[in-house]
Amino acid sequence: MSEYGDTETVRRILTEDGDTWAVVGLSGNRARAAYGVAALLQRLGKRVVPIHPKAETVHGEQGYASLAEVPFPVDVVDVFVNSGLAGAVADQAVAAGAKAVWFQLDVVDADAYRRTTDAGLDMVMNRCPAIEAPRLGLI
């Protein structure tokens, strides 16, 4: 598989693209990767907005059932759903005016990557902020 998102793009998303991150797939389930990554994002100073059908409050932040229901601007959309569903989420991120989309480890959709970057957004796929932030010396 080719690499989607170079180090410069990863750094820009983590440091420059904005501090409000919608985490799609984030619920109150502490055993899920999204829960731990969201906590790390908060330690980096990000506001984490949980997006999950249950619309649970997680890490002290009100959840929403869909990205379209968030009543304020979102800068980055971090995607923890499977690759088959991720492309639609990327399209929703573009429609919502996000600046960047981040597909987590094992989430890959080359067509979504093309559509999202063609729309002018930063995007990385098959990466995790919990791995990239320490690698870049951000924590």
Results as ranks from 00 to 15, higher is better:
residue 96 A to F: 04
residue 36 G to W: 12
residue 96 A to L: 07
residue 80 F to H: 14
residue 130 A to R: 10
residue 115 R to E: 05
residue 133 A to Y: 13
residue 134 P to D: 01
residue 68 A to L: 11
residue 49 V to Q: 14
residue 67 L to I: 09
residue 75 D to P: 07
residue 96 A to P: 13
residue 16 E to Q: 13
residue 28 G to M: 11
residue 85 L to W: 12
residue 9 T to E: 02
residue 53 P to C: 08
residue 29 N to F: 00
residue 30 R to C: 00
residue 110 A to E: 14
residue 37 V to L: 08
residue 109 D to G: 03
residue 123 M to S: 03
residue 48 V to L: 03
residue 127 R to I: 03
residue 58 V to T: 14
residue 106 D to Y: 02
residue 94 V to W: 09
residue 96 A to K: 15
residue 28 G to Q: 13
residue 81 V to Q: 09
residue 125 M to A: 11
residue 91 D to T: 08
residue 107 V to H: 05
residue 122 D to V: 00
residue 16 E to N: 04
residue 18 G to F: 03
residue 138 L to Q: 09
residue 93 A to N: 15
residue 68 A to H: 09
residue 14 L to G: 08
residue 63 G to R: 07
residue 84 G to C: 10
residue 21 W to C: 01
residue 38 A to R: 04
residue 43 R to G: 02
residue 78 D to V: 03
residue 126 N to Y: 06
residue 103 F to M: 09
residue 36 G to Q: 11
residue 26 L to E: 13
residue 83 S to P: 12
residue 65 A to D: 15
residue 112 A to K: 09
residue 83 S to L: 02
residue 78 D to I: 00
residue 110 A to C: 03
residue 37 V to R: 05
residue 86 A to D: 10
residue 25 G to P: 12
residue 124 V to L: 00
residue 41 L to M: 13
residue 57 T to S: 15
residue 85 L to S: 15
residue 56 E to H: 08
residue 27 S to N: 12
residue 139 I to Q: 02
residue 46 K to H: 14
residue 86 A to R: 06
residue 37 V to K: 06
residue 94 V to Y: 10
residue 112 A to W: 04
residue 18 G to Q: 04
residue 6 D to F: 00
residue 116 T to N: 06
residue 4 Y to C: 00
